[in-house]
Amino acid sequence: MVSKEEQNSLSSFQFEARLTQASLIKKILEAIKDLVTDANFDCSPEGLSLQAMDSSHVSLVSMVLHAQGFEMFRCQRAVSLGINLASLTKILKCAGNDDSITLRADEKGDKAEFVFESQSQDRLSEFELKLMDIDSEHLGIPDTKYSAIVEMPSSEYRRICSDLGVMGDTVRISVSKESVKFQVDGDIGKGSVCLHPSSVVDKPTEVVKISLEEPVDMIFSIRYLNYFAKAAPLSDTVTLSLSKDFPLQIEFKFGEQMGYLRYYLAPKID
């Protein structure tokens, strides 16, 4: 069955990939669609990747799905699929969470095909999405040794962001050896949340870890941190990496070998 399909596609499709779980794609989309409206999905033999800035160019989304994370991945030549994320969301709504999803694109690159197959293989739905020409720029993201790296449960991250979000629009993140502290100074008052590294490691997913080169104290827009919190379902833990005068990097890993979703947020300056 698979081999037959592969043969078919060899002739007509430039790019073809299948994921066993449609939910992953759905979650990724949920995590970025509020930040970015249109994006290029770059398909290459290494995998599927996406890089996009939000409209005000304050934050950057970088997503990578490695080829080995797919059930099947074939890409003869690099293609760029310009996709309107709202449209893609609509199509993905038609896929069940446990459906397998096949993505195809042909030589011309003017449309992408989505095939959803239910687990029991008794339901097959096919969708075609018109692609668009998106004039986006790729930014070179330098490899950086961050001064402070904080790992925490993503649910915790989400809670802090939503809690502090009601207080003001700017959060000060200060990382020291002992703790990471989120402070807000808003119109109605002040608030802060302080997390200490966990001493007991019961559940690996609920641990707070801090690795520090030097203490960092920076301010960021809470609005964006809240956008990033939408990626929490993708991963149990989130890693915040900070360096002075450099964008904050927030990473959600999809699991071993699968890939990651990273956000970069430019700091505010006093």
């Binding site: 005000s56 950057l60 070179g140 700017t170 450099f246 970069y264 430019a266 300056i269 006093d270």
Partner: peptide
Amino acid sequence: RNQRQTCIEQYFHPMRF
């Protein structure tokens, strides 16, 4: 002015056009 948002391009540089 005293507290301003920087933008991502100040840190990550765009490609040539």
